[in-house]
Design a protein around this nucleic acid. Structure first.
Lengths: 194, 194
DNA sequence: CGCGACGTTGATTTGCCTCAACGATTGTGG
DNA sequence: CCACAATCGTTGAGGCAAATCAACGTCGCG
């Protein structure tokens, strides 16, 4: 099995010995995920943190009308899980679905704890991972509070150009917190305005 | 100077030897902050992460109309900083203001890096801190996407009862992403409805 | 005391939603 | 390989949630 993707990802922040690499990869499960398949299910225990090797995912939750709201996207070289459920052992509050045929590497919470124990520098690695996730979310909250839909869309395509033509517009809309219809209006306005 | 607050906070997740405690506290600066004073200023470098010993703070950013939007609150035993500016050495995107006369313990980014170096278990401590912050923000994003103002207000007073009668309603409103006028309408509705 | 910030209320406006309908893809079973 | 359904992106009409603008009483504080 090919672990070069995840090992390079880890190597961005910490360096591992041969033995550590072996121990780390022994804790990983490789999994192929079909388009549309869920790797995290709302109300279920979520015991894995997932590294996206190839493909793309989205995390979403339902509102009281039953429409899906996109909480995050993740493509190659990103990590994704229901962080609350994973860390606290609580039921997941969201679904994570493959939006393409994908390949992932899964690390179980028990494996992660053994990893922290045996190779403490992974504390550093996940510290940085959590830190970057926190930064991302704090920025998103600020943007959601301070700007309106059209501006948020501009920020989005600027920040995540690699998502364009890969995730459907209705999912972008639900990520931005608007309806697909209104996103359509926005796109129309922008196309004319520039 | 009294470091019992911050040491107890650290002790929730890691235990330190006498020498480590000494080294850690030697990196801290104690500071008294007057109500209304800023400890992080937008567009300035933000070089400290702040532990709130006593008092209360809020982080806020301006929108294009010049109104303040509250990104987070922090009271005793919380940590607060502009996490992006602090970690990446970039200008802060927000202000952090004391909303009460407060006492804080400040850890400089350089000190933190020396701390990681000399006492690696602090990687674990801040991993958990960042992790909890990420959880908090991911949940807030989900709530902001999936619920409307009245529900968000109910969730807020439920989750943070200790803030009530301590932070002014206009700041709660800007945290929830509504105007003070509309929050007033909501409160009125809730008072009649129950 | 008097000023300024706060919380509230009401009238009007607006950003965005809902509902409905349509062509263009995409996918799927026959 | 076609027929059909399903999904997607779009447009338009009408409606609602929340913003804006304005005004007023209250209260803490200098």
């Amino acid at each position: 099995m090919d672990y070069s993707g995840i090992l390079n990802n880890v190597a961005k922040h910490i360096s591992l010995s041969k033995g550590e690499i072996e121990f780390f990869t022994s804790l990983l499960a490789a999994r192929q995920v079909a388009k549309g398949e869920l790797i995290v299910e709302e109300a279920q225990r979520c015991t894995y943190i997932n590294y996206v090797n190839t493909g793309a995912f989205r995390a979403y939750a339902f509102d009281r009308h039953g429409s899906e709201n996109t909480i995050m996207f993740a493509i190659e070289d990103w990590w994704i899980t229901d962080i609350h459920g994973f860390v606290k052992g609580k039921p997941a509050m969201m679904n994570v679905e493959a939006i393409e045929e994908s390949s992932i590497r899964q690390l179980h919470i028990d494996g992660l704890e053994r990893l922290y124990d045996k190779v403490p520098k992974f504390e550093r690695f996940f510290r940085i991972l959590m830190q970057n996730s926190y930064i991302r979310e704090q920025l998103r909250i600020k943007d959601n509070l301070t700007t309106q839909a059209e501006e948020r869309y501009r920020l989005f395509i600027n920040k995540y150009p690699q998502f364009i033509n890969r995730v459907p517009l209705k999912q972008v809309a639900s990520y931005l917190g608007v309806t697909p219809q209104f996103l359509s209006v926005i796109r129309n306005r922008l196309a004319k305005g520039s």
